[in-house]
Design a protein around this nucleic acid. Structure first.
Length: 553
RNA sequence: UGCCCGAUGGUGUAACGGUAGCACAGCAGACUCUGGAUCUGUUAGUCUAGGUUCAAAUCCUAGUCGGGCAACCA
């Protein structure tokens, strides 16, 4: 017998996006000695959303793939806007997404002393000066994109005087806004960010992390490259709008003689049927269009978590959307696909009826007492459970049609369907109330071992044993793909009035034991997540996503 | 009006001078105890105009369109 050499299965080829290319090239050239160190640097002034997830997956992902490491760093250089309230939430969300920063948790504010020393160095080198122009005056001096700026009258101060003034700024001798430290670069640069940018401002406010030891705070453009360099970050990824800041990033690295971290910009994620800006999310929360930051309709990570979206689905989504340098708008259907794909393989099935109508059997003597149901047809190891079967069941109102439309395969007078896991029913009659609503359906039961030719299977619950449960049906928050596309139309006008419908459903008995955080597929309906604030024996289910439904009634 | 970045089916992306491929969505079919899942087929694309080349989505030039930049925000 000849044995063919087993071909080594090719590793799953990941999309070779431009950042992977850059890292591979750096590794080949030995630019950083083969090291890959990245960082995720959120500003602790808001909750993380799925746009951040893209960055998190990129930052941590590139490190992981290259046996490097990724730091979690609170970019807290503006005490006016930031709060410790957010740092715990940020950590929880990153951890939930599945990433581990190990011991590498940092605060930009921990580097304030070094930043100060480096600023003094710039002053000594004649590369920074204390300027007393008001912000209004500075606007005039800075010029506009099409015209060069003019030099500040304070630009030629001596290093000694600058050093003295800067020290006194730190000592708290001057009020907010009276002085700033500027980098001395080029007032004629076509890049506004290079026209002697402010690198320190006076802010007499305590810092949420550093306490009250500072009254001067560094600006992002100055602080960020220093933070990266101190941590020996090799690849510092950020979004496209920082592209024009890169020359300043490089200037700081060079003029402060720092580790050569490099900034790489990529396009942020935009998703259809939602909004991503912090301001707009805040507005939705403040105006109570949603119930808090973790409302399942929000694209926040805590919202997605509460909706029941598994973190693996988000990671898969982030891999699939790729990384580029041009703006794009990703169809939320791709996210939904990733969610279904994950849940289909992993989640147990159960039956629940959202809009019940009674089904009564004509032949109660011929019924089984219980039936066996597979917990997950995709996973035999998930086992089976027993469901009581009764002479009266509830089925979904939309699974019966008095007058079936063309291609309607479900129950109708004289027609048969399969009852999921149980047998068949043939409709023998029905009753209506005065308003014309179906109040009861009659049918004849046929056991599974006498197959009836049917084209559909419907779900059901036993009338006595079923229990009422609260089900929250979440839908898209907005009715249009780009709610904030038109600057002249308030995005709020596109809110979907039906984004949340709460219904009392009837669930099979086993569902009563659901623990907060459990996930299920309600067969033929969708995937559901037991609310964190479900109470014992009174679970509340959030709809994560519907099942695909190819029937177009 | 200045500078920077970008442009591939409806959407997200790949192709690194040599057959425009993948995924989502759509459509059609097969299969099925979920009208689910799975499988198959299929519709549909290189912004425009020049140039270089045997050969251009890819390189060059110009234009068009889109995005970003004029916080003591990040």
């Amino acid at each position: 017998m000849t044995t063919e050499p087993t071909p080594t299965p090719a590793p799953p080829t990941k999309n070779m996006h431009f950042i992977r290319e850059i890292i591979a090239a750096d590794n080949r050239s030995g630019k950083y000695g083969g090291q890959v160190v990245t960082r995720f640097p959120p500003e602790p002034n808001g909750y993380l959303h799925i746009g951040h997830a893209k960055a998190i997956c990129l930052d941590f992902g590139m490190a992981l793939e290259n046996n490097g490491r990724c730091h979690l760093r609170m970019d807290d250089t503006n005490p006016v806007k930031e709060d410790v309230e957010y740092t715990d939430a940020i950590k929880e969300d990153v951890r939930w997404l599945g990433f581990d920063w190990g011991p590498h948790y940092y605060h930009a504010s921990d580097y304030f002393e070094q930043m100060y020393e480096l600023a003094c160095g710039l002053i000594r080198d004649g590369k920074a000066y204390v300027c007393e122009l008001t912000s209004e005056e500075w606007k005039d001096y800075r010029g506009i994109p099409t015209e060069p700026g003019r030099e500040s009258p304070f630009r030629q101060r001596s290093p000694e005087e600058n050093l003295d003034l800067f020290q006194r700024m730190r000592a708290g001798e001057f009020p907010d806004g009276s002085k700033v430290l500027r980098a001395k670069i080029d007032m004629t640069s076509p890049n506004l960010h290079m026209r002697d940018p402010v690198i320190y401002r006076i802010l007499h406010v305590p810092h949420p992390h550093a306490g009250d030891q500072w009254c001067i705070y560094p600006m992002y453009d100055y602080a960020h490259p220093i933070e990266d360099a101190i941590e020996k970050i090799t690849h510092s990824m950020c979004t496209l709008e920082f592209e024009v800041h890169r020359p300043l990033y490089d200037w700081v690295i060079q003029n402060c003689n720092l580790f050569p971290s490099q900034q790489i910009e990529f396009a942020r994620l935009e998703l259809t049927y939602t909004v991503m800006s912090k301001r707009k999310l805040l507005e939705l929360v403040r105006q109570k269009h949603v119930n808090g930051w973790d409302d399942p309709r929000l694209p926040t990570l805590c919202g997605l978590r509460r909706r029941g979206v598994p973190p693996a689905a988000i990671r898969e989504f982030c891999e699939r959307i790729g990384v580029t340098k041009y703006d794009s708008l990703t169809d939320v259907a791709l996210l939904e696909h990733c969610i279904r794909d994950d849940l289909n393989k992993t989640v147990p099935r159960a039956m629940a009826v959202l809009d019940p109508v009674r089904l009564v059997f004509d032949n109660p003597d011929e019924l089984p007492a219980t039936i066996q149901a597979a917990n997950n047809p995709e996973d035999p190891a998930a086992g089976a459970r027993e469901i009581p079967f009764e002479p009266e069941l509830f089925i979904e109102r939309e699974d019966f049609a008095e007058v079936p439309p063309p291609k309607y395969f479900r129950l109708a007078p004289g027609k048969s369907v399969r009852l999921r896991n149980a047998g068949f029913v043939t409709c023998t009659g029905f009753e209506k109330d005065a308003a014309g609503n179906i109040t009861l359906i009659r049918g004849r039961f046929t056991p599974m071992n006498q197959p009836v030719k049917v084209k559909a299977t419907i779900h059901w619950v036993p009338a006595q044993a079923a229990r009422p449960v609260e089900v929250r049906l979440y839908d898209r928050l907005f009715t249009v793909p780009e709610p904030d596309a038109d600057k002249n139309v308030d995005f709020m006008t596109h809110l979907n009035p039906d984004s949340l419908q709460t219904v009392q459903a009837l669930a099979e008995p086993s569902l009563l034991a659901a623990q907060p955080g459990d996930r299920f597929q309600f067969e033929r309906i969708g995937y559901f997540y037991a609310e964190p604030d479900s109470r014992p024996n009174a679970p509340v289910f959030n709809r994560t996503v519907t099942l695909k439904d190819s029937w177009k009634g």
